[in-house]
Amino acid sequence: MIASKPILLAEDNPRDAELALAAMEEHHLADKVILCHDGAEVLDYLYCRGQFKTRLQGNPAVVLLDLKMPKVDGLEVLRTIKNDAALKPIPVVMLTSSREERDLVESYALGANAYVVKPVEFHQFLKAVKELGVFWGMINEPPPEGASRATGRST
């Protein structure tokens, strides 16, 4: 079933992560969220390696990606995902504090599916994250698994 697909949240700041999870909780989406603390972890998850070696196969419903992260930053992760035929269909939403034009331009140029600026006001932040979770985790129809499995791995 579609709803069983996880939402991958890449957020290095534990407070932001907690607030995001609190927002997801409102719509009972929190248990679907897999939290990564930096870009390297996101890639580990996607390629089923490191701490995610034993995870269940399959791509997440969406990757919510922060721009500024330690080790591997958001744009680097985005580039890796969009350059890999197997990962390319995964929707990637940039979720960041930056409203800088060049970040927007670069993200879309690399193939980001959406770009959301985190609002300072918590109510709006709540709303934004909730809507993201609902849309990408429930409303949006993710790409069929087979289409993305170019490497032959299957669930």
Binding site: N13, T96, S98
Partner: peptide, 21 residues
């Protein structure tokens, strides 16, 4: 200004967020 835009807003978001929580 990039760093202001990115880094200064995060703590503000936390203040408002945690106060709300």
């Amino acid at each position: 200004s990039y760093s202001v835009s990115h880094d200064l807003r995060a703590p503000l978001r936390h203040i408002d967020g945690y106060a709300s929580l």
